[in-house]
Design a protein around this nucleic acid. Structure first.
Lengths: 240, 240
DNA sequence: TGGTCTATTGTTGTTTACAAACAACAGTTT
DNA sequence: AAACTGTTGTTTGTAAACAACAATAGACCA
């Protein structure tokens, strides 16, 4: 009898389409696949050594996440971002985070708060050189994900996950190209987020809402200036 | 040479998975498939006369819409609703509609407002007997969809579509079983919604937000009483 | 009698092959 | 030269067969 594949205690439950989805997402977020790029199912299937089935499934999921756009009979391309997208994403984010922090004030457990603090801890242990845009933006999204988790609101969390992917897709890239961010913003990230944990712990709903709104507004302002400088075409970026 | 299939000017662009998705969605919303019911791909494929491919695709889409729940290696079942779901859905809806009406005040065009009024017109032309829970709830969701469309916010609209499917899935059923709704609510629906159009036309953002919040709260209250009376099991409703 | 292990069965995940749709190009006609 | 039509090539949509997994029922042993 054949041996079971080793070392896959939990991973054995992962299915090919999961792997493809995660790999593709990483490739898009890291800009290995540039925005606007055409993705042919066959090509990708050959490259990843799987059949088209899982590829199709992965592309559909990423379409839902907003990282690729699928057109009927025309295939998929990597999504690209312009100023309109930024406005949409951050207005959505603001509305969602307000709801999230409201529910978090009501529903957050001790372990929820601990999870958020743990992320702040990891940050504080990083040396100044380790506080790269890539790493801090990852921690940033993780912290906010922990916040949404603390809300205990399944649909809200799902909606956030979609938004998170999109934010991630342009944030790493945007921050990496912003010279000022390293001196001004990255060192201040920790203290900025610590207040959230306290506010939630003390269930100060109104203060929480105000703070979140200002927080997201500042985030938008940082990203916005960058996108005004470097507008990107919405469609038809490269022929293939 | 074979003739092309006739009478399919637009429909020819529809693809099998679209048809399956729409049919399934209708079946779920109309409660032909009861909540909790298991859906086997093979069975459905045989029944609809297509292969499993389009079925799988449709089930994935409906999972995204929240009308079915897919578990790995375990298949899909029709989603079921309890009080927690209602709280989640209506809190999300409130947050989204506030954002929608804000953006609508900024971005609504004349034709957007006309589209909303057109729906109110259809309602006003219905006789009292035609104002059934099914019909009015359909118009209600169409009106709010027109409102979201007037916001011109692609991501917001997509998120609303997901929520709308879920609301639709329990609203028709809930209203149909509510004796009081016919006398009190249905005749008042038109006037209640007319104010929204005026508020948007006059760009009264603050008033708009307050009005929407109260509106959704009342909607929740109507649905809530019903779900407290008749709690439904969340999982494992029927064995198959 | 009860529990665990194994085998069976039904279902989903994946692959492969085929059909249909779209896009680009060439040839013909006006 | 411009526009139409037909052809060819590439890519997606669909079908059907195969493989892997999960649940269940039955056998075996304590």
């Amino acid at each position: 009898m054949a041996l079971k594949p080793l070392g896959l205690g939990l991973a054995s439950r992962r299915v090919l389409s999961d792997v493809v989805t995660d790999d593709l997402r990483d490739a898009i977020i890291s800009h290995d696949l540039e925005p606007g790029r055409r993705i042919a199912e066959d090509e990708l299937a050959l490259q990843m050594g799987v059949s088209r089935g899982p590829i199709r499934e992965a592309l559909m999921r990423l379409d839902r996440e907003g990282l690729v756009t699928i057109e009927r009979h025309k295939g998929a391309r990597v999504a690209s971002w312009d100023d309109t997208d930024i406005q949409e994403i951050y207005s959505m984010r603001s509305a969602l985070e307000v709801l999230a922090i409201e529910w978090a004030c009501k529903n957050a457990t001790a372990s929820d708060l601990k999870a958020m603090e743990e992320i702040l801890n990891i940050y504080s242990k990083l040396s100044e050189k380790q506080r790269t845009p890539r790493e801090v933006s990852r921690l940033d999204l993780e912290f906010h994900t922990a916040l949404f988790a603390a809300a205990h609101h399944a649909r809200l969390f799902k909606t956030w996950e979609v938004l998170r992917s999109q934010i991630h897709a342009f944030l790493v890239y945007t921050w990496s190209q912003d010279g000022k961010i390293n001196k001004v913003f990255l060192p201040q990230w920790g203290p900025d987020h610590k207040v959230f944990v306290e506010i939630i712990r003390n269930k100060q709903v109104e203060k929480a809402k105000e703070t979140v709104i200002r927080h997201i507004e500042r985030g938008l302002a940082r990203v916005e200036t960058h996108f005004i400088e470097e507008p990107k075409p919405k469609k038809k970026v490269t022929k293939r």
